[in-house]
């Protein structure tokens, strides 16, 4: 393969004490791709993201960003290397203004750009610009999710990791953020998306991996989105 994938996991084992949560996970996320990762609760999806971010140690195998191994780096240095996580539950700072939340995202920015540094967020979600002086805690759930995504984007990451971004959102808000993912991809940012909404994820992503019991069970393409039987079968395989 001529070019290294943006993000690679190579035979990764992740353990909590003596319990192996993820086993020999190998997956590649190429540039400007959306790769989905779906699976039942407790399958090891969030665990995988936490390991990528350096919050959990990798017991075996290697995680590489643009060909460079990430072993033993702290969360903050991985963030500044170009991986941005939109954590589960959004984790916005409710007491801070929208603008302050976005400016926090700049902590991981690798270099200065021309113009308004918050532009990547405002262009995608104009509502954030309108509400920039408001307290983030008073925004609606969908707006808070937009803020969390915007906050990750202002660091202009190579890769965006999303941990169940649609969780707890109204259907309309879900439509909004899925539309945003397409736009983010078109702007050249790579996405690794963890979701419970299997069908939508399969339809959106270039590839979607199904993780069950800490192991990869199946890989689905956009064509499989209508094949509900196949998705269900993948979930049930144990």
């Amino acid at each position: 393969m001529p070019e290294a994938a943006a993000l690679e996991l190579d035979g990764v084992d992740i353990r909590y004490g003596s319990v192996t949560a993820v086993r020999e996970l190998t997956l590649r996320v190429g540039r400007s791709e959306i790769v989905g990762l779906i699976g039942p609760n407790g399958a090891g999806k969030s665990t995988t993201l936490h390991a990528i971010m350096g919050l959990l140690p990798v017991h075996q195998g290697e995680i590489r960003l643009n060909g460079q191994p990430l072993r033993r780096r702290s969360a903050e240095s991985i963030a500044r290397a170009g991986i941005a996580l939109v954590p589960e539950g959004r984790r916005i700072f409710g007491d801070f203004t929208v603008e302050e939340n976005l400016r926090l995202g700049l902590a991981a920015r690798r270099r200065a750009y021309m113009g308004d540094p918050l532009a990547p967020a405002f262009e995608l979600f104009p509502i954030l610009q309108e509400f920039r002086r408001r307290q983030a805690g008073v925004l609606s759930g969908g707006q808070q999710q937009q803020l969390a995504i915007g906050r990750a984007l202002v660091s202009r990451p190579d890769i965006l990791l999303l941990d169940e971004p649609s969780l707890g959102l109204a259907p309309l808000a879900v439509d909004g953020i899925f539309k945003a993912f397409t736009e983010i991809r078109e702007l050249g940012t790579t996405i690794l998306l963890i979701e419970q909404r299997a069908q939508r994820t399969v339809a959106l992503a270039n590839r979607t991996h199904v993780l069950v019991g800490g192991e990869l069970r199946m890989t689905l393409g956009p064509g499989d989105a209508e094949n509900t039987q196949k998705i269900i079968a993948a979930y049930l395989a144990t």
Partner: peptide, 13 residues
Amino acid sequence: SDFRTARLLGVRA
């Protein structure tokens, strides 16, 4: 307010 999230955003502890 939330040290872990701050570090995930690249804030240097």
